[in-house]
Amino acid sequence: MIKARSLPGWAPPVAAMLVVLLINTVLFPSFFQLRLVDGRLTGSLVDVLIRGAPVALLALGMAGVIATRGIDLSVGAVMAIAGAVAANALAGGASWTSAIVYALAAGLACGLWNGMLVGFLKLQPIVATLVLMVAGRGIAQLITGGQITTFDDAPFAALAGGTLLTIPAPILIVATIAVLLTLLVRSTALGLMVEAIGVNPRAAELVGINTRSIVVAVYALSGVTAALAGIIATADIKGADANNAGLWLEPDAILVVVLGGGSLLGGRLSYGLTIVGAITLQAIKTGILLAGFPPQMGLILMAVMVSILLVVQAPALQQWLQHRALRRAAS
């Protein structure tokens, strides 16, 4: 019996990332050059990782939601809420640790709200999270009084501008969260249960999986990672801008998951490949920026490049290539 060899699931996303990085290297030979400036690692590649950190955190939470065949359109608004809570707490004299706890608690509350609507009330995910997407930014504006709330707290600001062993803090935060989540879903049955719900929710219930609790958990996690992204964004500018924090980052987070090999039909969960997708998207944006294209042309070029990458990774194309290989082998 003739069998066509299929590529491993990680191959297309990793190949896409390497192609984008190679193009950037060809166009800008110094792209991979790293330098130490005042004890801080710098370079174009480091900039890609730092600038992509907030979207990477959003995508890490979104990956679990999408794996259950859901979607979270509220992550940008949750970023704004968490940033507003943290900045308001710091401006009121709270310690930086308390501000982080308050912000994460706000994100958790938002995620639990979404999870209850989807998991227990069985609302469509796109409708349930759209409610918080619309109301969330208004909540953030109420917290800040409709103005940019600033603060002066060096330890909190270090979450965006600090370093540890020359490595910028945002990179370490994203890497730590990705590793912890990977250990969580691969060293326990949680990952299998999440993917089982995405493949067939009814079958998952019949084998004893508490689908409601799992759905609530993944949305709660999405809220926490969005809050963490909001904390980094707030620390970066030392203030909370409820109008612009996380604005329109939801499509980027969804796109990152898809570029990492995730499926909007559910059933696939890989936090490592989600990071690969985040690097791919931000490398495209950085390459276009370095090339000096005008903003309008940059958006068009990014859309074209992303479309090509998505077509290459499409399951239908992969199946067609396998069938073609089978026919060649048979002949």
Rank of each mutant, 00 (worst) to 15 (best):
N24Q: 07
T25H: 15
V26M: 14
V26D: 06
F28Y: 13
P29F: 11
S30Y: 14
S30M: 12
F31W: 03
F31I: 01
F31L: 02
F31P: 01
F31A: 01
F32A: 14
Q33V: 14
L34E: 05
R35D: 10
L36T: 14
V37Q: 15
G39L: 03
G39D: 01
G39F: 05
R40A: 12
R40T: 13
L41E: 00
T42C: 00
T42G: 01
G43D: 04
S44W: 12
L45Y: 13
L45W: 12
V46K: 05
D47I: 08
L49G: 03
I50N: 10
I50C: 10
I50W: 11
R51T: 11
R51V: 04
R51A: 09
A53V: 09
P54V: 06
V55L: 08
V55I: 13
A56W: 01
A56I: 03
A56R: 04
A56Q: 04
L57D: 09
L57W: 11
L60F: 11
G61T: 14
G61W: 11
M62A: 12
G64L: 04
V65G: 02
I66C: 05
T68W: 02
T68C: 12
T68E: 00
T68G: 06
R69G: 02
R69C: 00
R69M: 01
G70E: 04
G70L: 05
G70W: 07
L73A: 04
S74T: 07
S74F: 03
S74G: 09
G76V: 02
V78F: 03
A80E: 08
A80N: 12
A80S: 15
I81H: 06
I81W: 05
A82F: 06
V85S: 12
A86V: 09
A86W: 04
L90W: 05
L90R: 03
A91P: 10
A91C: 13
A91M: 13
G92D: 11
A94R: 13
A94Y: 12
S95D: 07
W96V: 00
W96T: 05
T97P: 06
T97K: 14
T97L: 13
T97G: 11
S98Q: 15
S98P: 01
S98V: 14
I100Q: 04
V101T: 08
V101Y: 02
Y102W: 15
A103W: 06
A103T: 07
L104D: 01
G107S: 08
G107D: 05
A109H: 07
C110H: 05
C110L: 05
G111I: 05
L112P: 09
L112S: 06
L112C: 11
N114D: 02
G115N: 10
G115A: 09
V118Y: 02
G119K: 11
G119V: 08
F120I: 13
L121S: 10
L121C: 08
L121T: 13
K122Y: 09
K122H: 14
K122L: 09
Q124M: 12
Q124I: 11
Q124S: 12
P125Y: 10
I126N: 03
I126Q: 10
V127E: 08
V127G: 10
A128N: 11
T129S: 01
L130Q: 07
L132D: 02
M133V: 07
M133K: 14
G136E: 02
R137V: 01
R137Q: 00
R137F: 02
G138C: 08
I139H: 01
A140C: 04
A140P: 03
A140L: 04
